[in-house]
Design a protein around this nucleic acid. Structure first.
Lengths: 217, 217
DNA sequence: ACCTGAACACCGTTCAAGT
DNA sequence: ACCTGAACACCGTTCAAGT
C-alpha cells in the first residue's frame, strides 16, 4: 500500500495481482489516517487526498464511504463525543456514594484528559461549526450522549431542583470545563501530565462550590 | 475597482487613466474585506484571493502588506483582542466603587457581547492556534492587554492575595467566560440579544460567588 | 514603492468509466 | 459494489517583471 507509481510508460498488465481494492475496512482506515493527519498538521491543513493516499487508495474512493470532506470530519467528531461520554461516565462511576463536588471534579478531569489526549478531535468537536446546517444528526446524537452524562451528575447534587435550574447549572459547568480545556489546548496554560488532577481541582473547585450554594441555597 | 477584465484581445493602452494602484489604504481595505468574508463564509472558506478581489487588486498585492495568509489573520485577531480589552475596560469602569461581583458580571457581559458581535474574529482569536510557533509577537501583546484588564478586576476583589492565587482565579474566570461565549457561538445555547445580561448573570453568578469565597475564605 | 502576470504544486468535487 | 482517471475550477505562494 502507498507505493509511488511513476508516470513512465508501463505495461498494461503487471505480473503480480494488483491490489486495487483496499481489502479491509477502508472507511475505518480513512478514519485513523485522518486522525493521524489531524494531529500532525491540524484541521486547517487536513486534506481528503492525503487521507486517501495514506490508506493506499485513489482519492475518489473516499466518496464511496463519506459524502464529502465535512462528512468525514463530522464522523470523527461524533466518535469523539461518544468516547468523551464514555470517559466521563467511567470517571464519575468511581465516586459512587459521594453525591458531591468530587463527582464533578472527576468528570472535569476526565474531560481535560480527553481534550489533551485527543486534541485533534477536540479541535473538531468544539471548533468550526460542523453541524451548522443540521446535517449529521448522528453528530447531534453523540453530543447529547455527553451532555446527558454531565446532566446526571449535576442532577445528583440536587435531584429535586427545577429543570431550568438544572439546565442553567449544566451550562455553567460545561462552560467552565470546556473553557479550561480550551485554554490548556491553546497553550495559554502549560500543564504537565502529572499535574492535571490538582490543576482541575484548583481551577474548578470555586466553580463547583459556588454552584452547590446556588443549587442548595 | 473590481471590474472584470475579459481575456479578449484588447489594445495595449486604455483611454482612461488606469486605476492600477489602490489609492487609499490597501492594508486596511484588505482587513475589512477579510472580516466581511470571514463572517459570510467562516474561517475555513476564507481565501486571500477573495479578499484581494474585493479590494480590487491582484491577489499578489496582498503580499506587499502581509507576509502571508496567517499573518493577515493574526493581524485581525490581534486587533480583536485590543477591541475586546477596550470593551471590557469600558464595562468595568462603570462599576467604580463597588469592588465586588458586579464588576466581573459587567466584564463577562462585555465579553459575550463582543463574541456575538465579532463572531468571525472570535473564531480566529480562540480557534486555531495562529501563534503556535510564536510568530506574531504583536498578537501575544494584544492578548496580554485583555488578560491584564481581567487580572485587575480580579485583584480588586482581594488585593492582598498571593500572585498564584490571583493567577488561578484569573484562569477560573477566563475559562468560565470563554466557555460560556463559545457555547453560545456554536449555538449549543440559543440567546436573544436582549437576554444577554440576565443570561450572564444566571450562568456566571455561581462561578463568581464561589470565587469570592475561595479568595476571601 | 507598489502592483501585475504567469507558473507551480496543490485542493475538493464531478463525470464517466473500468473490473 | 468498489475503485480509478481525467478534468474543472479553485487555492497559497514563488519568481520575474512592469510602471
Amino acid at each position: 500500500m502507498g507505493e509511488i507509481r511513476t508516470r513512465a510508460a508501463v505495461p498494461a498488465k503487471e505480473t503480480a495481482p494488483r491490489a486495487n481494492y483496499h481489502h479491509g475496512d477502508l472507511a475505518d482506515s480513512l478514519r485513523s489516517a485522518s486522525l493521524a493527519i489531524l494531529s500532525e498538521v491540524g484541521v486547517d491543513a487536513f486534506t481528503l487526498r492525503e487521507a486517501a493516499r495514506r490508506s493506499g487508495v485513489n482519492h475518489r474512493a473516499v466518496y464511496r464511504h463519506f459524502e464529502d470532506k465535512r462528512a468525514l470530519l463530522a464522523d470523527l467528531a461524533a466518535a469523539g463525543y461518544r468516547i468523551l461520554a464514555a470517559d466521563m461516565q467511567r470517571a464519575v462511576s468511581e465516586r459512587i456514594g459521594k453525591p458531591n463536588i468530587e463527582g464533578l471534579l472527576l468528570l472535569a478531569t476526565a474531560f481535560l484528559m480527553f481534550a489533551r489526549r485527543e486534541s485533534a478531535r477536540y479541535q473538531l468537536m468544539f471548533g468550526p461549526r460542523l453541524n451548522e446546517d443540521q446535517r449529521f444528526p448522528e453528530l447531534e446524537a453523540a453530543i447529547d450522549e455527553a451532555v446527558v452524562v454531565l446532566g446526571r451528575e449535576i442532577t445528583s447534587l440536587r435531584p429535586d431542583a427545577s429543570p431550568t435550574v438544572l439546565r442553567d447549572a449544566g451550562i455553567t459547568v460545561f462552560s467552565a470545563i470546556h473553557g479550561m480545556s480550551s485554554l490548556v489546548l491553546v497553550r495559554r496554560v502549560k500543564l504537565r501530565e502529572n499535574r492535571v488532577e490538582s490543576y482541575v481541582r484548583t481551577i474548578m473547585t470555586p466553580v463547583f462550590e459556588g454552584l452547590l450554594v446556588t443549587l442548595r441555597g
